[in-house]
Design a protein around this nucleic acid. Sequence first.
RNA 1: GAGCUUGUAGCUCAGUUGGUUAGAGCGCAUCGUUGACAUCGAUGAGGUCACAGGUUCAAGUCCUGUCAAGCUCACCA
Length: 764
Amino acid sequence: MDKAYQPAGEEKIYQLWEEHQAFTPTVPSSPSSARRHREPFVIILPPPNANDPLHAGHALYTVEDIMVRFHRMLGDPTLWLPGTDHAGIETQFVFEKYLQKEGKSRFDYDRSTLYQLISDYVSEKQGIAISQMKRLGFSLDWSRLKFTLDEDHTHRVYAVFRKMVEEGLVYRGEKIVNYCTRCGTAFSNLEVNYQEEVTKLYYLKYGPFTLATTRPETKFGDTAVAVNPKDPRYRQYVGQEITVEGLIGPFNVKVIADDMVDPKFGTGVVKITPAHDPDDFEAGLRHGLPIKKVIGLDGRLNELTGKYAGLKVAQAREQVVADMAQKGMIVKVDDNYVHRIGRCYRCNSVIEPMVTPQWFVKVDPLARPAVKAVEEDRVKIFPKRFKKTFLTWMANIKDWPISRQIIWGHRIPAWYVLDGTPQAVVSFVDQDKQIQSGFWKDLKGKFSFDLIKSGLQSLTVPADTKFYLSENEANEHGQYVLQETDTFDTWFSSGQWPYSTLGWSPDGRHSPDFEYFYPTTVLDTMWDILFFWVARMIMMGIYVTGQVPFRVAHMHSRVLDGKGQKMSKSKGNVINPIDIVNNYGADALRLALVIGVAPGSDIALSDDKVRSQRNFINKIWNASRFVLFHLDQFVVDNPQNITSLSPANFQKSQLKSKEDKEIIDKLDKLICSVTKNFNSYHFGLASESLYQFFWHDFCDLYLESVKSRSQEALPVLVYVLITSLKLLHPFAPYVTETIYQILGPKLNLEPLLLAKSPWPSPAP
RNA sequence: GAGCUUGUAGCUCAGUUGGUUAGAGCGCAUCGUUGACAUCGAUGAGGUCACAGGUUCAAGUCCUGUCAAGCUCACCA
């Protein structure tokens, strides 16, 4: 043995585990009845992005590895199923940046070509995350590796979508959504970052009123003006039609009364622009107001705005304000108005609320059973405080927009017949690689349908257009059939991950894996995707399988940099876990991430912390070296008595010395407390007590005390060491296995792998 | 505006269901080791457990309030 532990050997140990298929459980021939006898322990890995290397947060999947290794040693049939995520918007965004560097853009390609390009790009990078997970020692069953765009997963997602359509849970609607004009897609509320920003608040002359607005440029889309019903100042106007002077001519709007208006804000009068403001949109629904769109999906004012058409929103605002000022239409300007602006979580552009046709999931029927399951702890959320967060969020959940205007993802399986849909808008790349776009009715005379179809980039049809769930069916109703070009929100497909990866089948003939492993046991992830993902999985899982997808939702910590700062590329404080592994070994990193960390609290990953754990790993190594040295001597002296040292033959009652009894007592207590802490997800405590025991009780006290009688104490030394290695193994699989591989043959230990050896119980 | 979390040694934090003199790592001081240990060991300094009340035989741990910090959610133009 080297004087110090060499993490360089860790990769060989991982190979050893793989050769023995140590992480692949066997599925019994009658899975469902076997499951009734003994429930397996199952975790589905939250799939990391296929095209990205791991970041420090991913290293916290260590927590899952700890649980899985523990249960494997307990003898539970154990599965930890790996996968990677196509991560729709994220990946397309990264790829577009890459295209940009090449001087190209996504608009240079038709849909299927672009898809293929991204697909190639991703598969080129996909291996990185996987090899990094292996490097971290994750005991995943690679024989079951999945990808979110795998054909079988896609089929299941489609089948569930059709079921939802047939049961009225999916609808199309013209609704106001958060639209990023840069990314060219809608986002859910969760994907918008709101920031307080200082802007201007303009007080405009508006018919008989003066009103305050931050968005004068949307005046062209106003279809009403609102006051509070209780406001005496304006009561006389309610219900009347007023004439407002505009930059492109006067227009008429109705005065409505609505509680949404706060009489104390501004002048107590609000202009209503249903097409470009979420509140106004709601007000429009309440009062039956027309929706007048004046901003296009390209972020520019449209033809309804006269000379302002073609200007981007920000430019238009400047121009409009200047013109209004000239005409004396601005009463005053508040320069320091602080309010919240929504920005795209990907590219930070200002989110433009837009009314567009989108696909929605009616969420209420899905949410109610999910809420119930959590309330009744059929899905236990740990730490408990997140349960309340979950329930309040679910109580306010709105219908879920599931369509995204990107191509990297599951294309929505709906087909339209264009024959009777003159308002359909298509854009496509023609034979000269030029983009053509416009109404289908205008283009169909100029281009062949086949050309449009093959060069298609996007198709937009009104929300009430009839759609079909298969191309064949659509073909029966017309000649010109195109598939929806929107893709599913990533969370719509990953929300189905637990049952889909295990082989749920729409026809009820599920795979043995599904019968045996579903529902899974624990879902562990960081709390930031509790709503994005965990909530969706619970809803979809119950809806589709009638069972919760997992019994426990375990929220792990967030990893911060050494100073407790959030890591970000812009700050340049991103820690690459693999760098740490290369410097100090995977075990040191794993321990540093869990030791003494309270459940759900943030963790600052400092170099100091990793180094101190590296020292601990080295301590384990050297204590073993000490034992090995005396063991070798024993073998020389008593080659035939080796079985007397085997931990299997260890008898507590035969101990004579006080130190021997004490250390075994402490070890027994340790076994109990570690086991208990494992079962209650207190890994921070478990690792801390192991650290304390091994370093201080075993090394500093016991080991020092027996130096004068090491041969006599050898059975105790061997027993305590081997037992400790087992207890430590979930945290530090590499050193412990390495040592076991050295000691094992000398002691004729069974089994051959520590990873497959049984969890210790107190000494007999 | 609502909710959640945090406030314990110089620094970073543990302390799960309330129970003996409040702990760890790093740092610091003194000494000792280099035949298990890129060191390691021994000893020590250092905390009115944010503040004020309350429940209890007993509170860092439960309750109420105050102060401070952070996070999340929310439709105020």
